[in-house]
Amino acid sequence: MTEGFLSSLPPTLRGWLLGFAHDTAFPGDIRLFEEGSAADRFWLVRTGLIALDVHIPGRGAIVVETIGDGELLGWSWLFEPYQWHLGALTRTAVQAYEFDAPQVRAAMDEDPAAGLALFRAIGDQVIGRRLRSARTRLLDLYGPDTSRAYESGPAR
């Protein structure tokens, strides 16, 4: 893996983080976590695609974003109450590094320098970037009014 989150880290930090990783793989169409459930793990995606979704009764799972090669899956584990805000479903087969969140958090506390560096990387590369892109998407979604299709109201 040359691109993505890991490559944005200094080599020492990269090695430090990967020290907590173990390899994992999932087939497609597997739910990795549910909205509201405990955020006790996170992943660095090596290959594959994961959909982040929200479940709306009567409308099913609405996908709000996808996470692909090289990207960090999950940051809710960093902040209390350590609960996922969205659900995640693999769209394709996925290979990833998996991390045990409490273990990484403990390591960040023990080595504040590494912890701060990782925290900054996540804040910038992941949270900040996704926030910026979400705002850009808002502009698309809430831009000039798109005319609604005529609701002819078929009975079924």
């Binding site: 909205e35 509201g36 929200v54 709306i56 009764p57 209390e80 109450p81 609960q83 805000h85």
Partner: peptide, 15 residues
């Protein structure tokens, strides 16, 4: 409100 909003708000309040 909409269920998604209820979930988000209640979770936040509990937090």
């Amino acid at each position: 409100g909409p269920e998604v909003m209820i979930r988000a708000a209640a979770r936040e309040l509990a937090h």
